[in-house]
Design a protein around this nucleic acid. Structure first.
Lengths: 204, 204
DNA sequence: GTCTATAGAACGATAGAC
DNA sequence: GTCTATCGTTCTATAGAC
């Protein structure tokens, strides 16, 4: 909209964006430690170095804050390998990469699984929230489907092994289910589970 | 231990077993309506027509009660199709059967998904409970593995498509994940998702 | 001077202690 | 059943960017 400012000092918009980001980072920390219910808006604000007023200037409710965090997660934490999937890279290679990063990502995955769990329960008890969460699931599935479509167009055979809606659904279910089981029984996240299952589902 | 009684009146053991079953039935009803945390032992007892004393005579804690319920569920709600799986019946046929029953089972599935969710969270915060729940997951997986092993021995090819541990894990993850997503976004449980995915994973 | 991001007090609801 | 603490949310005052 405007010319880039030359000053070191932030413009109001930049400062606002920075505050928002600081609040989201704090929210991740607090939500993942205390769960959605256990986390207080006060603590989120304090962790970010602000007060409640700042939170409510950026997010209209606590649910809104969580959903914004989820949106950030959904648009941020996938792109590395989804691109390779679209380009037709061998699944084994992609999966091996995922698995190699797994020990490093484990804590983040666990944190998300816990937050998700509690927010799911919360959403079950409030129709409006449930709908908004369902939208995110649908959006995630659509994204998967788009990538799979690209892949199978590029693929030498050009033939998908099964309905893309169902394949996308199955992939999401598998990932979510595995994170869930891994929460209780971490040994289940053994090497090879990703690469074998994804290869089996998606094809070579 | 003793010879069978000839009286119409129940033996003490039979009466005890009957009470236990009544308590489990009541527990299912109350837990699925109020969740694990929300359910009070008092209400479970009352629903079954007993008092707290009866509950604690059969189960040492509320967790114990839930785990007993889970054990019943695990040993009861699978056998129909696991047998067919072992006998090498076509997966499409098995899956079609599951899907045909799905509308009927939906409420039960949802109830279990909700209870599971809440109990998972509870288990995450108590190491002892977590271990006991992990045992159930492991037991379930072992059962799956046994069935798959039988199937692939019978199967004309005799060759499993992937590591049986991982296949069993993937099946569990898929089922759990799908129930979970279905809680928030019921439309995801569309016809064909089971048959296509199971066929793809297990083989024809 | 105007506008707005944020602080912080105030309110209503709820859960737990006793 | 009463009291208290806590928490989500709303409201208002203010400091500082423009």
């Amino acid at each position: 909209m405007e010319a880039q400012p030359r000053r070191v000092r932030l413009t109001r918009e930049e400062a606002k964006a920075q505050t928002r980001q600081a609040l989201l980072n704090a929210a991740f920390e607090v939500f993942s430690r205390h769960g959605f219910n256990g986390a207080s808006v006060d603590l989120v604000a304090e962790t970010a170095g602000y007060t409640k007023g700042a939170v409510y200037a950026h997010f209209s409710t606590k649910e809104d804050l969580y959903l914004a965090l989820l949106d950030e997660h959904l648009s941020e934490d996938t792109p590395d390998w989804i691109e390779q999937l679209e380009e037709g890279a061998p699944v084994a290679e992609i999966a091996a990469q995922i698995e190699a990063q797994l020990p490093e990502d484990l804590e983040r995955i666990r944190a998300w699984a816990m937050m998700t769990l509690e927010f799911f329960l919360h959403a079950m008890r409030n129709e409006q929230v449930r709908t908004r969460l369902a939208e995110r699931i649908e959006r995630g599935r659509a994204e998967y489907m788009g990538s799979l479509e690209k892949r199978y167009r590029i693929d030498r055979t050009g033939i998908a092994p099964m309905s893309l809606v169902h394949l996308a659904t199955a992939l999401m279910a598998f990932e979510n289910g595995l994170s869930l089981l891994g929460l209780i029984y971490p040994e289940i996240l053994a090497t090879g589970i990703y690469s074998e299952t994804l290869t089996r589902l998606i094809g070579e």
